[in-house]
Design a protein around this nucleic acid. Structure first.
Length: 530
DNA sequence: TCTTCCACATA
DNA sequence: CTATGTGGAAG
């Protein structure tokens, strides 16, 4: 079942592209890009972003998990994702500097439960928290650098601690999420603040997952054990397991060791799709709608801001959306980790989960709207947008988070990025944070906002899609204007509300940025897709 | 449901 | 060797 084995065959696919080429599509798995619905706006925006393609590495593995219903453990200390999020990026200008970052947006606005060997909706999602951005440690770096090897986000960690001081991405247990990749041009020309900042957002629907504090579906546990080197200790080769288990526990014989669940495939699995909500349709087909392969979208930052968040909640309209906030975590470390691309393959296919419209690896493009670009990035010195080489090197990664309050891009741009700093790990000191935050913590710091904006933008709920656009979620594109799509709007008001999510936020430590963006545009969402 | 600790694995 | 990441069981 699930294994995706079947399908994949492709080597990689890129996900995104911004506009241009829809080309192939096919095999590879680029993320989908959505085209922008609206119009492209500024040309500038896209510059160069249009030919960017992103391919999810090890897509097959992601697909296997996705078919069952991927679960990612979240702990107070922070847990890595497995499979690791690694991509191959092509189409970048070798000499141009870019910042690559990720954020993880709500897949829908539901809360899930796992019972009867399957996932089902139990209620409404909690307000999302400020989204934090994870800036790849090598950022900013040239297109040549990023293209040279796989870009790995394996060090990104997920936490359920809303007050996490380490800059990890904060998620709510039993909620569905969709990771997104944003590529922001870091040239001097593009200040973040500037409206022209070009960026693309790529969404691979097969990377959607439900955050959990402990695995619910044994099939997922088994897949993790079988594929994650660090979990090898749990893998029994047959006999061994039992014994070892026994020993460890002191029990006699263990229960079922690895085998236990091992394979069952139950259908139950994917929650994602299951829910129903979503999409339904055939998954795959979906992909096409947007045609693009990758999912990236490009838009100008501004747009992003404006764009409504994808949440379920978000409305398509500008108003409502909530902005979510985002915090950025920047690691300074630079190295990329992996390189090899090997496996990327992908193939399309469907995933049961909710949305995947893009399923295939696609990234969507978002119209510019919502996905807010990562504001911070641009400005952030750290990132080097300006040009710095990446400065941070400092030690290794540090995380910086920003909390922002408001969403303005402009502000962001300039201001401060103080945070960028390399903080020692964790925290960035920011302010206490948003002052008021009535509900949300939006206060934003300038930069933060931007970033956050980006983040927000897209986040769509997976499942939901709900009525709105199915597409939204997916790709929203963040920041870049680039391509076509963009319909960005100009900066508009960034903030809006952000309904739900606000709450938490900010930890005292940092601010996050928030943004509220609304998403307006639709992006395809995963949900749709699926 | 979540947190802590554990033994074992990678790196 | 150390440091760190795993899932499971126990709490």
């Amino acid at each position: 079942m699930a294994n995706g084995g079947d399908q994949f065959g492709l080597a990689e696919r890129p996900d995104s592209d911004c506009m241009d080429s829809p080309k192939e599509t096919k095999q590879e798995n680029p993320s989908f890009t959505l085209n922008s619905p609206t119009s492209p706006q500024t040309a500038s925006s896209q510059q160069g972003m249009e030919g960017i393609k992103v391919f999810l590495h090890d897509r097959e593995l992601w697909t296997k998990f996705d078919e069952v219903g991927t679960e990612m453990i979240i702990t107070k200390a922070g847990r890595r994702m497995f499979p690791s999020y690694k991509v191959k990026v092509t189409g970048l200008n070798p000499k141009t500097k870019y910042i690559l970052l990720m954020d993880i947006v709500p897949g829908d606005d539901h809360r899930y439960k796992f019972a009867d060997n399957k996932w089902s909706i139990t209620g409404k999602a909690e307000p999302a928290m400020p989204g934090r951005l994870y800036v790849h440690p090598d950022s900013p770096a040239t297109g040549a650098h990023w293209s040279r090897q796989l870009v790995s986000f394996q060090k990104l960690k997920l936490t359920n601690n809303h007050l996490d001081p380490f800059g990890h991405i904060i998620l709510n247990s039993m909620h569905k999420y969709q990771p997104r990749l944003h590529i922001v041009k870091a040239d001097e020309n593009n200040g973040f603040g500037s409206k022209n900042t070009a960026f693309c957002t790529h969404v691979f629907s097969e990377t959607a997952f439900i955050a959990v504090t402990s695995y619910q579906n044994h099939k997922i546990t088994q897949l993790k054990i079988e594929n994650n080197p660090f979990a090898k200790g749990f893998r029994g080769s047959d006999d061994n397991e039992l014994h070892r288990m026994a020993k460890l526990q002191g029990k006699d014989y263990p229960v079922v060791p690895r085998s236990t669940v091992r394979q069952r495939a139950c259908s139950a699995g994917s929650p994602f799709s299951g829910e129903g909500r979503g999409l339904r349709g055939s998954p795959e087909a979906v992909a096409s709608p947007y045609s693009c392969e990758n999912g990236l979208s490009c838009s100008s930052p501004q747009e992003l801001l404006n764009a409504p968040p994808a949440h379920p909640y978000t409305l398509p309209h500008p108003h409502l959306q909530h902005g979510q906030q985002t915090q950025v975590y920047h690691c300074t470390k630079r190295k990329v980790e992996e390189n090899c691309p090997s496996g990327n393959r992908q193939h399309p296919y469907k995933k049961p989960f909710t949305g995947s419209s893009p399923s295939e690896g696609e990234s969507y493009y978002h119209p510019s709207s919502y996905p807010p670009p990562p504001p911070g990035l641009a400005n952030n010195p750290a990132l080097g947008l300006t040009d710095s080489p990446y400065s941070s090197d400092m030690g290794q990664r540090q995380a910086c988070m920003f909390a922002g309050s408001e969403p303005r891009l402009d502000e962001l741009s300039c201001a401060s990025w103080s945070y960028t700093c390399p903080l020692p790990s964790a925290m960035t000191p920011m302010e206490p944070y948003p002052p008021y935050t009535p509900h949300p913590p939006y206060s934003s710091s300038p930069q933060g906002s931007r970033l956050s904006a980006i983040a927000h933008q897209s986040s769509p709920p997976l499942g939901e899609h709900i009525a709105h656009d199915p597409y939204q979620s997916q790709s929203s594109g963040p920041p870049s204007q680039s391509s076509q799509n963009i319909h960005s709007r100009q900066l508009s008001p960034p903030l809006r509300e952000y309904p739900r999510y606000t709450p938490n936020l900010s930890p005292p430590l940092y601010h996050t940025l928030e943004t509220h963006t609304h998403i307006r545009c639709g992006v395809p969402e995963w949900s749709a897709a699926s």
